[in-house]
C-alpha cells in the first residue's frame, strides 16, 4: 500500500516539471530557438515550420501561456538545428545526386 502511494507520488513528481514551465524558462527556450534559427537563416537553410513554431511561441509568451510557449520554442529549436544539419550534410552530398 505504502509502496504504491510512494510510487504514485514519485510518478507525479517526475511529470511535474513538464507541466509547469515558468516565464523565465519559456523566455530562455525562445531565446535559444531564436539564436538557432538565426544560424539557419544565415546559412539560407531555414524551414517554414521553424518560423511557424517561433511565431506560435512568441504569441503564447505574450499571452502568458508559459507551457505552450516553451513547448513551441523547444520544437523550433529542434527544427532549426535539424535544418542547419541538413545544409551542412548537403554541402558535399549534393554531388552524389547530380545527373551525369
Amino acid at each position: 500500500m505504502i509502496r504504491s502511494i510512494l510510487l504514485a507520488a514519485g510518478l507525479a513528481l517526475l511529470s511535474l516539471p513538464a507541466v509547469a514551465a515558468t516565464q523565465a524558462e519559456a523566455e530562455a527556450a525562445l531565446a535559444a530557438a531564436q539564436t538557432a534559427e538565426a544560424d539557419a537563416l544565415a546559412a539560407k537553410a531555414a524551414w517554414t515550420t521553424t518560423e511557424a513554431d517561433l511565431t506560435k511561441a512568441q504569441k503564447a509568451l505574450a499571452a502568458g501561456q508559459w507551457d505552450q510557449a516553451k513547448a513551441a520554442a523547444d520544437e523550433a529549436l529542434t527544427l532549426a538545428k535539424r535544418s542547419v544539419e541538413q545544409a551542412n550534410e548537403q554541402k558535399t552530398s549534393w554531388r552524389n545526386a547530380v545527373f551525369r
Partner: peptide, 9 residues
C-alpha cells in the same frame, strides 16, 4: 548545387 541539394523540412 541548389538544384540538387535537399532542402526544407
Amino acid at each position: 548545387e541548389f538544384f540538387y541539394s535537399r532542402k526544407g523540412q
